[in-house]
Write a protein that binds this DNA or RNA. Structure first.
Length: 109
DNA sequence: GCAATGACTGGTA
DNA sequence: TTACCAGCCATTG
């Protein structure tokens, strides 16, 4: 298959991969930046965050957060609003996601 | 081609 | 629990 790129036109390769994964995360579930990088098998957490910062506006970016269950500071308020709307498991304090229950384990479950 | 940047992470105090 | 540090790596100027 010649030139198997296509798909995401002007987006960098890694960015396209990240966006694909984020779009597959079902409502009420989340992944950490590190999880996405590991799922792709390349890049790192910072790259994932960087991609969402630049191109994440068209995907459910709030379903990707830090390893401690807190979203990025600049989008914290909006992210928390989505969690409540989607019924994402939150901790008692309600200001961070309960990763133990909310973390998405891929299509397998 | 090189240096700087950043929606991160895990360890230590 | 919070605070700080060094490592990490694709993308950008």
């Amino acid at each position: 298959m010649p030139g198997d790129e296509g798909a995401d036109q002007t987006l960098p390769r890694f960015a396209a991969l990240v966006l694909e994964v984020v779009q597959r995360v079902p409502p009420g579930r989340v992944l950490t930046y590190g999880d996405v990088a590991e799922y792709l098998g390349e890049g790192g957490p910072r790259q994932v965050g960087s991609v969402l910062s630049r191109y994440g506006s068209d995907v459910p970016w709030w379903r990707v957060l830090r390893a401690d269950g807190t979203p990025a500071p600049q989008v914290r308020a909006r992210a928390l609003d989505h969690y409540v709307t989607e019924g994402t498991p939150l901790r008692r304090a309600g200001d961070r996601v309960d990763l133990r229950r909310a973390r998405w384990h891929g299509d397998a479950g």
